[in-house]
Design a protein around this nucleic acid. Structure first.
Length: 412
RNA sequence: GUGGGUGUAGCUCAGCUUGGUAGAGCGCUGGAUUGUGGUUCCAGUGGCCGAGGGUUCGAAUCCCUCCACCCACCCCA
């Protein structure tokens, strides 16, 4: 038997209703902030991610679906969408358009990781980018938007974490300092941390091993080493968020796994998601365009929501979408009329109408019950002769002989 | 890439310790006489017991190997 490939899955009804509800909520919020949709290809040249996301990141070194095209170019299934959006921004000279470019996207991403709860090889992201401004006001507004989105989607009990990771000016100095401070304590830390202390000191801050926490708490934090412009930027973002009454927690140890982030970074976490408790991540990436070869400066900030995780945590008990009307033709001769009436009613009302193509009346009414239909419409020889059809209310059992006009009215 | 757990009917699972070639509930199909559902009753459908090998007269059950899925590490959304 052929099955869905590892880490991918079929989204079936009624769960797809939740997905659609979440996406509709997202589009409504994006619309209210005047963001517009962008759709970029799922396939890009490998170079785009290597340079955009970072040559040394885990995503690029071991998680990408990369293959050689028949023409010989190396292509990659997108592991994230920000690099593509910036590529499109540069390629189509969106910097020439008026104002800050506000773009959103919804779609699948691909990373070849070991699947687990809330983590899939094909997963969906809902994200947005505001490109063309360095102002901290934009940071605050992007964060406000994502909070509105989560609430509109029905998520409760989440927590917003923010931090600043500095810029090309102050971060390297901080990392050097961190490396120094780690040297004496590293041997007493866990195995992972000993390795990270050398390869990627920032990640030590992310360590969850209980025994290491005391030592890690004594390490210098990035926030104490921000350069003046970065510190002012961060202070402004926090001020704006307070003004908006958006609760947040500063997490000086919050570091992101993609190289392009600078200054503001943020994350939203939610319990009951298992180990993958991060619903969304985002941040500012003022140097990304240049590292992709752009001559124009294109500072920006964005986020991406893990849609699979969001859906998982707002998913209520799936009830199938109820059916408004099931038509039950009695006898062969009623089939044609039923087909015509079904189409007429769909056009004349907003109701969902289904036609039972076969079965005894008893079975069809049983089906109506199982489908949760509000009404059943019985069409047989007598009904056709009188042009009045039996509309049965499935919850009360009451049945009346009505004309098509009366039926249409009853369905509203 | 590393660890742990689980694989028996469409779904949720029992049976495995103490080997005797398969069970429940739900679902699905049909019946309780003609064109009227929900409840009830009856019947039916349905499984190469994840795959392969070994031990044995005999394996879902014991042993070995492999595979798949889930969870966790790592990393991230």
């Amino acid at each position: 038997m052929i099955k869905a490939v590892k880490g991918t899955r079929d989204l079936l009804p009624p769960s797809t209703q939740t997905w659609n509800r979440v996406e509709e909520a997202a589009r409504a919020v994006f619309r209210s902030y005047h963001y517009h949709e962008i759709r970029t290809p799922i396939l890009e040249e490998t170079q785009l991610f290597a340079r955009g996301v970072g040559e040394e990141t885990d995503i690029v070194t071991k998680e990408m679906y990369t293959f050689e095209d028949r023409g010989g170019t190396s292509l990659t299934l997108r592991p994230e969408n920000t690099a593509s959006v910036i590529r499109a921004y540069i390629e189509h000279r969106l910097d020439q358009r008026p104002g800050v470019q506000k773009l959103y996207y919804i779609g699948p991403m691909f990373r070849r990781e070991r699947p687990q709860k809330g983590r899939y090889r094909q997963f969906y992201q809902i994200g947005a980018e505001a490109i063309g401004s360095e102002s901290p006001v934009v940071d605050a507004e992007v964060i406000a938007m994502v909070i509105d989105l989560l609430e509109r989607a029905g998520l409760e009990g989440f927590q917003l974490l923010i931090n600043s990771v500095g810029d090309a000016n102050c971060r390297p100095q901080y990392v050097a300092r961190l490396r120094e401070e780690l040297k004496p304590v590293a041997p007493s830390l866990c195995g992972d941390c000993q390795r990270r202390a050398d390869t990627n000191p920032l990640r030590v801050l992310d360590c969850k091993v209980e025994a290491d926490q005391a030592a890690i708490d004594r390490l210098p934090t990035i926030l104490d080493h921000l350069c003046d412009p970065c510190r002012e930027h961060f202070e402004a973002v926090k001020r704006y968020l307070c003004g908006l009454k958006i609760p947040f927690a500063v997490r000086p140890r919050l570091v992101r796994g993609l190289d392009y982030y600078m200054r503001t970074t943020f994350e939203v976490v939610h319990g009951s998601l298992g180990a993958q408790n991060s619903v969304l991540g985002g941040g500012r990436y003022d140097g990304l365009a240049e590292s992709l070869g752009s001559k124009v400066h294109a500072p920006g900030i964005g986020f991406s929501i893990g849609e699979d995780r969001l859906v998982m945590s707002v998913e209520d008990t799936h009830k199938p979408e109820p059916l408004d009307l099931l038509i039950a033709p009695v006898g062969e001769s009623a089939l044609r009329t039923s087909l015509e009436i079904a189409r007429h009613l769909r056009a004349a009302s907003a109701a969902s109408v289904e036609l039972a193509p076969q079965g005894k009346l008893k079975r069809v009414l049983e089906l109506a019950d199982k489908l949760g239909a509000r009404f059943a419409l019985i069409i047989g020889d007598d009904e056709m002769a009188n042009a009045r059809y039996g509309l049965k209310n499935m919850s009360t059992g009451e049945q009346r002989e009505l004309s098509l006009e009366e039926i249409t009215a009853a369905l509203e």
